[in-house]
């Protein structure tokens, strides 16, 4: 049995979910409420001692890293290939996954955390929050959470994240000039991971991602949003904010998407 422990079908949590749906693999979904800090509670730490989401367990083995959970699903199960057979396209897939995970991903998360996760969590009791931060096992995550909760991202950090997204989205748009998919012509892990990381951006940061400035990027987002696996994956969520962003993306169709 394949068990996936996830929060909303957004960013990292969405990657293994969509991969399993895309591949037609049966799995048990376990919703972990990130805003209630379920990922740092003892029950969950037994499953994933790092206290991070998502987690994926297959045959009693914990599989690491959300992007690479997709590789695992692709290798371990039958179904349509999620990785190109051509070695150069495989490399392109890796290159863009790294760009999403390491370059534009943290910038997107920072904007999302400062505008959404932080304010949501700050509504909770202060002592309860302190205790929740203390329980986080990884030092890096403890620092990131305390920054998000107390809104201590500096204006300089946020400006750097915005600048990175302005150029980064234009670069993704450029990569999509000659291809329908990120790695080439075939849908792959890079489309899935990139979509999950960035589908909220046209709503969250329209200056960087819109039909006039980045038409290829926008049609790629909508093309991916229409995949049955993505539609099904988005319906697994419980927080209306993400479903709403998804709808806004689809509703805001421009002439470039003909």
């Amino acid at each position: 049995m394949l068990d996936i422990y996830h929060w909303e079908p957004n960013a990292n949590s969405g990657k293994p979910l969509l991969a399993a749906l895309e591949k037609g693999v049966e799995f048990q979904s376990h919703y972990i409420d990130m805003l209630a800090f379920d990922q740092h509670k003892p029950d969950y730490l037994v499953i994933n001692p790092a206290g991070t989401i998502p987690a994926m367990v297959h045959n009693a083995t914990l599989i690491f890293e959300s992007t690479y959970m997709i590789d695992y699903i692709d290798m371990a199960f039958e179904g349509p290939a999620l990785r190109p057979a051509d070695p150069y396209e495989l490399w392109r897939m890796r290159w863009w996954c790294r760009f999403f995970d390491q370059y534009v991903g943290p910038a997107t998360s920072q904007l999302g955390w400062s505008s959404f996760v932080g304010p949501m969590v700050r509504e909770r009791d202060e002592e309860e929050l302190k205790a929740a931060i203390e329980r986080i096992p990884l030092k890096e995550r403890r620092m990131a959470w305390s920054k998000a909760i107390y809104g201590t991202f500096t204006e300089e950090e946020l400006a750097e994240s915005r600048a990175r997204l302005m150029s980064g989205i234009a670069q993704i748009d450029e990569a999509l000039t000659d291809h329908d998919a990120i790695a080439g012509d075939q849908f792959s892990i890079a489309d899935l991971a990139g979509f999950m990381m960035l589908f909220g951006l046209p709503v969250m940061f329209p200056e960087a991602a819109n039909d006039e400035r980045t038409p290829n990027f926008m049609s790629w987002l909508r093309r991916t949003a229409r995949r049955p696996s993505v539609q099904e994956g988005l319906s697994i969520g419980k927080n209306p904010r993400f479903a709403q962003r998804f709808q806004e993306l689809l509703n805001g169709e421009g002439i470039s998407d003909a």
Binding site: F64, Y68, Y72, M75
Partner: peptide, 8 residues
């Protein structure tokens, strides 16, 4: 696949 996951 598990070893491949560890490598990545």
């Amino acid at each position: 696949p598990v070893a491949f996951n560890r490598m990545l």
